[in-house]
């Protein structure tokens, strides 16, 4: 009997504290796993500097973050979401429909995707995006028509490439990294092949590239290795002939065992990503609910810290984690508008 009484009272205490703790004093952040390490860095720095409770940062993926972010206004919804692409029209509509109308968009910098190979591989790899497309697409052009990808070896694509099997490890379709790779590498590679442009023009369909060049092959050479980039790094080390696709920060941290595959002759690096010479660079954003500023304690201060020179500028602590900073002039204007919440986001298509 005592157990029962004890449990009932314990449950009552929990229920009572649940209502009491509804008022939130921590900032809640969701969103892209690519933006996650940068937000983590700002959150920790912010908590250390100000002594305020550390923001809670959760890595949900860009799309998942938008879903939670756009659920509505209020203490039960997150204040900020990170994104490795800009907000889509459908997501913005969802936000507006749920009353989240006043959003600020902050571009924090660029992130590179890298294609890398183990240092045990002796070749100096240099691929064009067209070759990447031919190696990884589900369907490739041949004799004026799209056929299932017949290439099993690099040398079959170009005799200058090594005579080894095509093995590429990459992220699954749920990942933002995968979306970016398809858009930046596959579509661009597809369009760079004359035969494809001829077929696309003949079809008269403007969205031909989107519809036909987005599918990765599923017959073996491209391996979906899961969301864990570290796993890809480990598997590259055990198979010198395999190539891997992951965020630039993983290459940056593992330079001793991995080397870069040059794309169109350009090496991945802070400078080439910032200048846009390296073809696989993408913008990173965070979105903040302006209605929460001033309501959730410290949110405004946190946004100020995120947009500060200390964090974003070249040499700032986000660069140490692999973020490629924005050019000075662009950054200045953006910092101003995000901190003051003067530019209200409106997504139109």
């Amino acid at each position: 009997m005592t157990t029962v009484k004890f449990t009932v009272s314990a449950l009552a205490v929990i229920a009572a504290s649940a209502t009491a703790a509804a008022a939130r004093d921590q900032i809640r952040i969701v969103g892209s796993s690519t933006v996650f390490p940068y937000t983590q860095a700002v959150a920790e720095e912010f908590a250390n500097q100000t002594g305020a409770p550390a923001p809670i940062v959760e890595s949900t993926g860009t799309g998942g973050g938008m879903q939670i972010f756009c659920e509505g206004i209020g203490e039960n919804t997150p204040d900020i979401t990170g994104a490795s692409r800009s907000m889509k029209k459908s997501e913005f509509d969802l936000c507006v429909q749920n009353g989240v109308t006043d959003i600020s968009e902050a571009l924090i910098g660029y992130d590179g995707l890298s294609l890398a190979v183990s240092r045990a591989n002796e070749l100096d790899w240099n691929l064009t995006l067209g070759q990447v497309f031919l190696a990884l697409a589900a369907e490739v052009p041949q004799d004026g028509a799209m056929v299932p990808n017949p290439y099993r070896k690099w040398s079959e694509i170009d005799s200058a490439l090594p005579d080894t099997d095509i093995v590429v490890l990459g992220p699954p379709p749920t990942s933002g990294t995968r979306d970016a790779f398809v858009e930046l590498a596959m579509h661009a590679g597809c369009e760079s092949i004359d035969e494809v442009t001829a077929i696309a023009e003949a079809s008269g369909n403007e969205d031909w590239v989107d519809e036909n060049c987005s599918r990765m092959r599923t017959d073996g050479p491209f391996i979906e290795a899961g969301e864990n980039d570290n796993l890809i790094v480990q598997r590259l080390n055990s198979d010198p002939n395999a190539l891997g696709i992951f965020g630039y920060s993983f290459l940056f941290e593992n330079k001793d065992t991995l080397k870069d595959v040059k794309l169109n002759g350009v090496e991945a690096g802070m400078e080439t990503i910032a200048s846009g010479d390296y073809p696989l660079s993408r913008p990173l954003y965070f979105y903040v609910k302006n209605a929460h500023r001033g309501v959730i304690p410290n949110l405004q201060e946190f946004v100020e810290e995120y947009m500060s020179e200390n964090a974003l500028a070249p040499g700032g602590y986000l660069e140490e984690r692999g973020l490629v900073a924005l050019p000075d002039d662009e950054r200045g204007a953006l910092q101003e508008s995000v901190v003051s919440a003067s530019a209200k986001l409106d997504v139109t298509e």
Binding site: I14, S17, A18, A21, Q26, R28, S33, F36, P37, T39, Q40, A43, E44, A47, P53, A54, I56, V57, E58, S59, E227, N228, D229, N230, G247, S249, F250, F252, E253, N254, G322
Partner: peptide, 30 residues
């Protein structure tokens, strides 16, 4: 599996658990 830099002081504060902490660390580049 959130990133929380402070230990929770009540069961209502955001926190991780041991297996999810392992999950987060396994996915960190450093």
């Amino acid at each position: 599996n959130a990133f929380v830099t402070a230990a929770p002081s009540t069961p209502l504060d955001a926190a991780t658990a041991l297996p999810t902490q392992i999950f987060i660390w396994a996915d960190s580049p450093e």
